[in-house]
Design a binder for these strands. Structure first.
Length: 628
RNA sequence: UACCCCGUGGUGUAAUUGGCAACACAGCUGGUUUUGGUCCAGCCAUUCUAGGUUCGAGUCCUAGCGGGGUAGCCA
């Protein structure tokens, strides 16, 4: 039951008030007693207080059959976080009991993802390391009359199991003697039988209303090489037979998993009881669902295999590698996981909370830069008066953080500005540039627009302005006030880069909710990626892969790994909050900028209304996919 | 229609375990601002329903309603 004696020198270790709460790394919580303790934390505190356990040992147990996603991040933060907060340990264990689906590719990526998220496991284990011990225990169960070898085919097994409303029937093998079963089991192990010919089953209760207890299969025969044990084994343990026992071997105290395993708990307990081994407590929580995405490994795999995305690390994927490439920071993902809480209620988190988490972090740390995604030329017709063709302007890197310093940006008489930022005839509340109006060029001068040049089709191709020499940013002696400030880049000095503006992968809140004959793929958002060429300020030439910046007034961007010296690629991580888009779409039916090709801030589709469809609470059609 | 779990603002999570329903996000108002960003202030709930216990119920009891899960030799 317990692994080590209770530390007498810390009598209050189990007292909630004394347990250090270092979640998020702040020990400065002004009122630790008030800190929220989710139900798992409460259960742990209670078990520690009662002496049921004397330490916190958790584990994160992924199956290496796919890439980790944001749902796993919730579990990782929970398991590693609990261990950290309570001075315990957390192992990384690969649940590699089904060699036909698993691969070392996933073993490697999972470790990388856990580390990237900022966690370090105490021990690295594989369920396959325990195969011999598991087998010895199986022989013990057989000898004790608690398990038997069954000859039923897979189909027969299903028939014999009964249904949700009817009891099952007993397998003929149930009446074998322990001696017969032992002999059969050894021959199974020795490879005497073909795949599927026999199984080892626990002898429990074919009439139990909990189907998991109707003589569950412990071993199946599969002559399949294992990525770690090679061809050493031809029988492989089932999840229920491997998982709890692996927990027990590692002296795990709290085996935290997702809700689908709730009705496996009686079986988990049964094995530990019959074996009389260290008995961890299994506690289940609700897995994470997020709007506008899917979370099942099967569906993510399908998206990859059918090339709806560029790979597991496509920036639109909810995978950890995808989020990383998208530009999300580990800090923001951890903050998100802390923010959403832990409970048993099957909920769906609004994706804006994830977006908000990364915005919040990047607002603090991302240096500001100027970039024009949908350019139109602005010419300063009186620039001659300035005397020199180029003037270096100083711009702060982060208005909220003085220590971030400033940089120099070349200003000239020929600039690119955002097409959205100009209108010949502007609506009442439009306070950017209009004909006859004035606007401040960020970190530059105030300009007055006096004319425009159009092409044959009537499109504005050049905006003609005069600048006001008295209004230089930081040295303004004019006393003029203008409502708008817009960003710009000097034509001559601009760097040309590729920008990938990512939007949500799906166009509906719950892609899993589909009409007859449709699949989640029918909900793919056709506009989830728009690529454009943009002009950016020269300072950006020095940005390295992985660097994150804020394109002022647009959003946060990261330098993608596809970048080369002669062609940089920026991924949009998330747009800035866009109050103007709201105003514009409210009065005037979105005339302001809803149809800009660059659609720099992702306004418009899908974003505005997260209510209405879907019935709100917990609708998740995905059947039991493990994520803990 | 078997068994298990869950129902607190638009969305999530709390409520000192029976004592003034709180926090965050979203939304709406307004303010500051050389980013329509950030920041600041304000507004936004008959705790699924009906009974019951109690001085007092989101919390306990009963019934109902609603949602989710479970019939792999997957995890």
């Amino acid at each position: 039951m317990n692994a080590s004696p209770r530390p007498d020198d810390s009598p209050n270790a189990a007292d909630p008030k004394n347990a250090a709460d270092s979640s998020g790394g702040d020990d400065s919580n002004p009122n630790p007693d008030k800190a929220h303790r989710h139900f798992i934390r409460q259960a742990i505190d209670s078990d520690l207080a009662s002496g049921r356990f004397d330490a916190v040992r958790t584990r994160f147990p992924p199956e290496p059959n796919g890439y980790l996603h944001i749902g796993h991040a919730k579990s990782i933060c929970l398991n590693f976080g609990l261990a950290k907060d309570l001075g315990g340990t957390c192992n990384l264990r690969f649940d590699d009991t089904n060699p036909s689906k698993e691969d070392t590719e996933y073993v490697d990526s999972i470790q990388e993802d856990v580390r990237w998220l900022g966690f370090q496991w105490d021990n690295l284990h594989f369920a396959s390391d325990y195969f011999e011990q598991l087998y010895q225990w199986a022989e013990k169960l057989v000898t004790d009359g608690h398990a038997y070898v069954c000859d039923l085919t897979a189909e027969q097994t299903r028939e014999y199991r009964g249904t949700l409303t009817e009891a099952g029937r007993e397998s003929p093998g149930r009446s074998n003697t322990p001696e017969e079963n032992l002999d059969l089991l050894r021959r199974m192990k020795a490879g005497e039988f073909p795949d599927g010919a026999k199984t080892l089953r626990a002898k429990i209760d074919m009439a139990n209303p909990n189907i998991n207890l109707r003589d569950p299969v412990m071993y199946r025969i599969a002559h399949v090489p294992h990525h770690r044990t090679g061809d050493q084994w031809c029988i492989y343990p089932m999840y229920d037979w491997a998982h709890g026992q692996s927990d027990s071997i590692e002296k795990i105290t709290f085996s935290i998993c997702t809700l689908e395993f709730e009705h496996h708990r009686p079986l988990y307990d049964w094995y530990c009881d019959k074996l009389e081994i260290h008995h961890p407590r299994q506690i289940e929580f609700a897995r994470l669902n997020i709007t506008y995405t899917v979370m099942s490994k099967r569906k993510l795999l399908q998206l990859v295999q059918e090339k709806h995305v560029s790979g597991w690390d496509d920036p639109r994927m909810p995978t950890i590698v995808g989020l990383r490439r998208r530009g999300y920071t580990p800090e923001s993902i951890r903050a998100f996981c802390a923010d959403i809480g832990v409970a048993k209620f099957n909920s769906t988190i609004d994706v804006v909370r994830l977006e908000n988490a990364v915005r919040e972090h990047l607002n603090d740390v991302a240096p500001r830069r100027m970039a024009v995604l949908d350019p139109v030329k602005l010419t300063i017709t009186n620039w001659d008066e300035h005397g020199s063709p180029v003037e270096m302007m100083s711009a702060v890197n982060n208005p909220g953080d003085e220590s971030a310093g400033s940089r120099e940006i070349p200003f000239s008489g020929s600039l690119w500005i955002e097409r959205d930022d100009f209108k010949e005839e502007a609506p009442r509340k439009f306070f950017r540039l209009k004909k006859g109006g004035a606007v401040r060029l960020r970190a530059g001068y105030i300009v007055d627009c006096h004319d425009v040049v159009k092409d044959a089709d009537g499109n504005v191709i050049e905006i003609l302005c005069t600048y006001d020499p008295q209004t230089k940013s930081g040295e303004d002696t004019s006393g003029r006030k203008v409502k708008g400030t817009i960003h710009w880049v000097s034509c001559e000095h601009a760097a040309e880069v590729t920008v990938r503006n990512y939007d949500r992968l799906f166009s509906v809140e719950n892609p899993d909710s589909v009409a007859e004959g449709k699949t989640f793929l029918d909900h793919l958002n056709p506009d989830s990626l728009s690529t454009t060429t943009a002009f950016v300020e020269p300072a950006l030439r020095e940005a390295k892969v992985g660097d994150r910046v804020q394109f002022e007034r647009l959003g946060y961007y990261v330098v993608d790994q596809d970048s080369r010296d002669d062609e940089m690629v920026f991924n949009r991580i998330v747009g800035l909050r866009d109050t103007w888009a709201k105003i514009a779409s409210k009065d005037g039916g979105g005339q302001a900028n809803a149809n800009s090709p660059a659609n720099a801030k992702g306004k418009g589709k899908g974003q505005a209304n997260c209510k209405g469809q879907g019935n709100g609470k917990g609708n998740n059609n995905d059947k039991g996919k493990k994520q803990s």
